[in-house]
């Protein structure tokens, strides 16, 4: 229904354009008036669910000019910050936006999947039109560098472990809870508003351990304030060859990749295929752009690109993985 209306509108407007062009003759010839390749004709809104200054905002601001560069028509890709509720407000906004390609968003898969499981929200990650995966940010477990615990097994011997968290529905907390559940470790959460406070609690020695993404903690590991005990991925990190992955520490193998954080670009559900293809193409070209790689290098970001179809498949598997640990979440929330 909506689609036919859109086509009718586009037909009408292209007819109008033809008349106008015939009338004045001096109109720019570069404008292609056919319905499918006409996208985009106006600026694209690129929604970020976090405040300026964070990793997601930096990513969005870095890639936006390159998406613009590789789009067929010269329109701007405008980054809009819509912070709050752990990016759920932005996810809801994109979910409800008109699927015309003029609203896209950057998604934190790990965080939002946890939120979707634990709380009542309007967005549904399984229906979002995925355009690309930009990067992969594996989960890690860290302790203070002054901590007596050298391995995860050392913690098992302690009868009361304090885990520094950022809300119980957070992806990192879920990772920790699932790990401790497998190991049979008893723990209490020490809750904070933000990453910096929760890291500082560990550095200060008030909490024993914390979970997070490697990007958010790398600087503290490299500066010698924190020590990594576990790296959640299919193989060990080349820069930290001594840190084990879950399956090497006696944990089930499906935990290796279940909790990784992915940076994705998505659009509202039921985005028409031709528009999706145009956006997907522009994002892919942006990621391959050598100039963009210079910017990434400056920011110490790495890419891990997946196209639209592969991202959709990956999200499905990830959501299934979270579903498997759902009882860990419900148990967590029922505790009190």
């Amino acid at each position: 229904m909506r689609k036919t209306k859109l086509q009718l509108f586009l037909l009408a407007s292209s007819l109008l354009l033809v008349f106008v062009m015939a009338g004045c003759g001096a109109s720019p010839a570069s404008k292609d008036a056919s319905a499918s390749s006409n996208f985009p004709t106006k600026n694209i809104e690129f929604v970020v669910g976090y405040a300026p200054g964070g990793g997601y905002s930096d990513w969005a601001q870095a890639i936006a000019p390159f998406i613009k560069k590789h789009l067929p028509n010269q329109v701007n890709v405008i980054v809009r910050h819509m912070e709050g509720a752990g990016s759920a407000i932005a996810a809801n906004y994109v979910q409800k936006a008109k699927p015309d390609g003029y609203t896209i968003g950057i998604y934190n898969l790990g965080g939002l999947a946890g939120t979707q499981l634990a709380r009542e929200v309007q967005f549904d990650l399984s229906t979002v039109t995925w355009l690309a995966r930009l990067s992969l940010d594996p989960a890690i477990a860290t302790v203070s560098s002054k901590s007596p615990y050298q391995t995860m097994e050392d913690l098992a011997s302690k009868d009361h472990v304090i885990m520094s968290t950022k809300g119980l529905a957070a992806n990192a907390t879920l990772t920790g809870a699932a790990t401790f559940a497998e190991m049979g470790v008893k723990w209490t959460p020490l809750n904070h508003d933000g990453t910096s406070e929760s890291l500082l609690a560990v550095i200060r020695g008030d909490a024993d351990i914390t979970w997070g993404s490697i990007d958010s903690q790398k600087q503290y590991i490299d500066s010698g304030d924190m020590r990594m005990l576990m790296y959640y991925n299919s193989e060990r990190h080349p820069d930290y060859p001594d840190v084990p992955i879950p399956s090497e520490a006696g944990l089930p193998e499906e935990m290796n990749e279940a909790f990784n954080t992915h940076r994705l670009i998505g659009a509202p559900p039921e985005l028409p295929d031709d528009i999706r293809a145009i956006l997907e193409e522009a994002i892919k070209k942006a990621i391959d752009d050598p100039e963009f790689h210079e910017v990434l290098e400056k920011m110490e970001f790495t890419t891990s690109y997946l196209n639209s179809a592969d991202t959709t498949e990956m999200v499905e598997t990830a959501l299934q993985g979270y579903q498997n640990y759902k009882d860990v979440v419900t148990e967590l929330l029922a505790k009190e």
């Binding site: 300026p52 890291l199 500082l200 550095i203 600087q219 500066s223 920011m299």
Partner: peptide, 27 residues
């Protein structure tokens, strides 16, 4: 001292410094 922001504005400043290859923190 730690690269940990003392305020929200400092968090943004750290992001800016990182892009210039400066690592806020003990260094």
């Amino acid at each position: 001292a730690f690269g940990i922001p003392g305020s929200s504005a400092m968090a943004v400043l750290i992001g800016g410094l990182l892009m210039h290859g400066l690592a806020p923190g003990p260094e």
